[in-house]
Structure formats: structure tokens, C-alpha cells
């Protein structure tokens, strides 16, 4: 399948009064056409920063891409000027943010906000733009779209607003949709509907989706592949099956163990003890060492080698090393 996005060795830093925070420290990711990639990890692991840097939406200053490349089709997005990146934003790559209650401008009508992207990027008459917006609202499941176009965001419920945000992101028919925790602010029943909507949209438009979340339940429903991030690095990546049934990194295993499961009633949840490392001065070895139940001496001092376990599953962990396997066996 065709690769549409290829992130190589991405480093992003934020300069603060306290020093330089290395939020993303060498992320490698790729995405194929029509695929859904989920990026999971706890708060502060750099998943949102990674996603925002694809569209150059990290606040700058203080944020800065210090190293690496992001290839979208044939262009390196990190080297593009602000003017050129604006032609990509909303047209080729769209983004959906976490909170639909604040993502829409309260003073403009929904129709106005839906069509302004179209009018900005494509030569289109007001009438045609309106028609297209109504069609889009139909697709995301908003009843009476014609009347709703004239209304303001406060006249919609949270779930409806998220549908509008999705419609807004899709109206220029982008090839890549980045959804930053799109269901976190919604209640559970609405969450399921929105996830179904993502599936439906992908079927109809063939859009590739990067889904950022910390909710493994969401991931299980719609992701094709999963990348697990920790302390600014992707520590394990694999298909949904591989990550859920054959996780190799102790952090991934811990993450899955800390999720409540219906088929294991009564068992206590196993939390991952400790907190992630301070990214002002990230550890030189594996960042998970301090919390890892299987940590060895080498983990603390040297970053693990990147190991390919299958065509799709890759992991950064010393346990995959031949010597470690021998050591554990004895």
C-alpha cells in the first residue's frame, strides 16, 4: 500500500523559563493510505505534540522542530514556509481537536465556519459551498442540515458539535485526518456514535486517520495499527492484534493490565507504579527503566536497540536482545 506520511527522527523542543523541554525525542512513524493509526500513551508523552507538528501547529515560540523530517507524499513539511503550509492545512491534512465545546467560534454561524475553508482554498461560489456543506452535514448525521447551517454553535449539543467539527475537517476532502482525542470530552454513548462515524467516513472517503488517544477502548474499536509512545519516543508499534495479544514492551504490557476488563471480574487492576521521567533532562538509557519490573543494568545506561519482530511489529526493548533472553532463561 502507498505510504502517505513518513515521520523520521522527529525532535520537538519547547524553550521555557526552566530550560528546554524535549517533548518529542526521535519519533519514527509511517502511515499508509486508508489506514487508521492510533497513537497511545499517557499524558505528556508527546503524542499531541507529534500530531501538531505534522501541521506545524505547535505554538512557536516556544515550540520548535529541532531535528528530523515529516514527509507527506513527496514534500517535507518541516521545511515548508508558513505560506505553503497553509495550502496543506485543511486541504490535504485536517485536524480535529479534543473539546468540541470550545473548538467552534461562538459568534459565527455553523454554515459560515463550514464553508470558509472551502472558500479559502477552492474557487467556489457561495451557493456551491453551501450545497457542499449541507451534504457534509448529512454525511456526519445532522438532521435538518439546511436550517442548522444558519444556527450558532451554542444551539447544538456536545456530540452534535463534534459532528460539525468532523464535517468541517472533511469538507475539503483531505487525505489525512488527525484526530486529537476526539472522544475524550464526550460521554460514552456519544463516543460510540462518533467512532462509528469515523469508520463510516473512512469507508466512504478512504481518508487515512491518525487517532491520538489514551483510551484503549477507543483504539480497540477502530485502529488498524497502534503506536505506543512513552517519554517522547515510540517504544512499540504493531497491528492492533499484535499490540493487544502479543505486547512485547513491559510498558505496553503494563498499559494493557491497567485497563479494566469485563471478563476478569474481581481481579484488581495493576497500575504502573511511578511517574514518567522529567523531560528537561531525559535519561540516556530506556526512559521506562525506573518503572519497569524487568529492568536490567543495561537499560539504565544505553537506549535499547530497535528490534523488528515481524513485518509490522517493532519494539525498543533490551529484553529482545539475544543476551537478555539467555540471561532470563538461566
Amino acid at each position: 500500500m502507498e505510504k502517505i506520511l513518513d515521520i523520521k527522527d522527529l525532535h520537538v523542543s519547547f524553550t521555557t523559563y526552566g530550560g528546554e523541554v524535549q517533548a518529542v525525542r526521535g519519533v519514527n512513524l509511517d502511515l499508509h493510505k486508508g489506514e487508521t493509526l492510533a497513537i497511545v500513551g499517557e499524558s505528556g508523552c508527546g503524542k499531541s505534540v507529534t500530531a501538531s507538528s505534522i501541521m506545524k501547529l505547535i505554538p512557536s515560540p516556544p515550540g520548535k522542530i529541532t531535528k528530523g523530517s515529516i514527509h507527506f507524499k513527496d514534500q517535507d513539511l518541516t521545511k515548508m514556509s508558513n505560506k505553503d503550509i497553509r495550502k496543506i492545512r485543511g486541504v490535504d491534512i485536517s485536524m480535529i481537536f479534543q473539546d468540541p465545546m470550545t473548538a467552534l467560534n461562538p459568534t459565527l454561524t455553523v454554515g459560515d465556519q463550514l464553508t470558509e475553508g472551502l472558500k479559502q482554498h477552492k474557487k467556489i461560489s457561495s451557493h456551491d459551498a453551501n450545497e457542499q456543506a449541507i451534504e457534509m452535514l448529512n454525511l456526519v448525521g445532522i438532521p435538518n442540515p439546511k436550517e442548522r447551517m444558519k444556527q450558532h454553535p451554542h444551539q447544538f449539543s456536545g456530540g452534535m458539535r463534534q459532528r460539525i467539527v468532523i464535517a468541517m475537517a472533511l469538507i475539503c476532502e483531505p487525505e489525512l485526518l488527525i484526530a486529537d482525542e476526539p472522544t475524550t470530552a464526550l460521554d460514552v454513548t456519544i463516543q460510540a456514535q462518533i467512532l462509528q462515524l469515523f469508520n463510516k467516513i473512512q469507508e466512504q472517503t478512504g481518508v487515512s486517520i491518525i487517532l491520538i488517544t489514551h483510551d484503549l477502548g477507543v483504539v480497540a474499536k477502530i485502529a488498524d495499527r497502534i503506536a505506543v509512545m512513552y517519554a517522547g519516543k515510540v517504544i512499540e508499534v504493531g497491528t492492533r492484534r499484535e499490540i493487544f495479544y502479543n505486547p512485547q514492551h513491559p510498558y505496553t504490557q503494563g498499559l494493557l493490565n491497567s485497563v479494566p476488563r469485563l471478563d476478569q471480574r474481581g481481579d484488581q487492576l495493576i497500575p504502573i507504579n511511578g511517574t514518567p521521567p522529567d523531560l528537561f533532562s531525559p535519561p540516556k538509557g530506556c526512559p521506562f527503566t525506573a518503572r519497569c519490573p524487568k529492568a536490567m543494568e543495561v537499560c539504565e545506561n544505553v537506549y535499547p536497540v530497535h528490534t523488528k519482530l515481524s513485518d509490522t511489529q517493532e519494539v525498543d526493548c533490551w529484553l529482545q536482545d539475544e543476551r537478555a533472553k539467555k540471561y532470563i532463561a538461566t
Partner: peptide, 8 residues
Amino acid sequence: KTARAKGL
């Protein structure tokens, strides 16, 4: 941020 993401 949404408006920026639209490429305005």
C-alpha cells in the same frame, strides 16, 4: 487553533 488548522 481550529481556524489555523483550516489553513486560513
